[in-house]
Design a protein around this nucleic acid. Structure first.
Lengths: 188, 188
DNA sequence: CTCGTTGGTCAACACCTGTTGGCAACATAG
DNA sequence: CTATGTTGCCAACAGGTGTTGACCAACGAG
């Protein structure tokens, strides 16, 4: 049995986690106070400590992220870049976790490490499978990340007006060729 | 006369500003405490308040940035993208101000606004001068920013290993075509 | 020399932070 | 029923924060 008996406090635990994700995403690590998270979850701050130990562990729990990148085998190569860009847009707009990780990663060493882990575990191997020379995979993955995270930074975090004004179709049309080149083009 | 008589305290003012830039760049807004900045500058925290009023104004003073983009007229069009990427790398590596603005912009509304101003005042008009249809300038500037800030984010702020491992030449070779396309290519 | 101005320190303020331990209400097992 | 573990709140701690005002030393003009 992997599933333990459900506890009465599971709802509270989940509420804390949801509130934490939201607060971390909006405020970043330092300004997301345990008191505010507890207030959002409708419970006492001390409960947060009891269930998650301390603030760092709470963040670790709140920043578990499944990117769920699209399956490589069911996708013609010429649509891959387009699908990838669309997928990242979906992840950013659906789940606040990535936003939280980025905000925290910028001001907090543990957050940056967390982002690095997620990236290395999920994007790295993915890129390695589809770029010509596996030895170049880290370089190509870094380029991909720089473009995708950069757009998200401008659009969702900094909310630079012209970046926020772009339509979804514009983004896909402009970024897909870049992503395709970073992943598969010959080294310049 | 635009230059006032030099005051004895000018050195202190400058020391505070330098220490503030460094601290904001390394720690972000919240964790860069006035006490730490004063300690770095070798003076009492209350001096910071006397000279800059409060923490927000200190940040405003510390985040004045001159991008000094390369002159358009003295540059063949086919080298422009390369020069631009090189120039941004120089700015990032020479001056901590951009790093500070990015770190603060991510967790602080005033910081984001500041970054937006700098961007609109210096990058916007620049892009408008060299892209085919001026009406598209904001879009193209946003794309440029997303790629350049994205790389800087991964390399200098998050320090993702593969992004930090890229050589200067690799970055220029990979990014210049992207930048050129964003600035001048036909709308996809 | 005297006196107002400037550059600087010290100690304190009110507030907010993460974190802890004690105590009451409840649920459930025996 | 009692006994025990779970869920929750309350009040407090120790430490750090931005900010303020009183006070002192050096300077420069008259």
């Amino acid at each position: 049995m992997t599933t333990k008996a459900p506890r009465r406090s599971d709802a509270t635990r989940a509420a804390i986690l949801a509130a934490a994700r939201e607060r971390f995403a909006v405020d970043g690590y330092e300004r997301a106070t345990i008191r505010a998270i507890a207030r959002d979850a409708g419970i006492d701050p001390s409960m947060v400590m009891r269930y998650y130990g301390n603030k760092e562990k709470l963040f670790a729990a709140a920043s578990e992220l499944e990117l769920r990148l699209p399956d490589l085998d069911e996708l013609p190569a010429d649509q891959l870049a387009t699908r990838l860009v669309e997928h990242f847009l979906d992840v950013w707009e659906t789940d606040g976790t990535l936003s939280a990780m980025l905000r925290v990663g910028v001001t907090n060493a543990a957050g940056a490490e967390r982002l690095q882990e997620t990236f290395a575990a999920q994007v790295g191997p993915y890129v390695a499978r589809l770029c010509p020379d596996p030895a170049e995979a880290p370089t190509r993955a870094a380029l991909l990340a720089s473009q995708v995270l950069g757009l998200a930074l401008c659009r969702y975090v900094l909310r630079l007006a012209p970046a926020a004004a772009l339509t979804r179709d514009e983004i896909v049309a402009w970024l897909a060729p870049t992503v395709e080149r970073y992943l598969t083009a010959e080294t310049p």
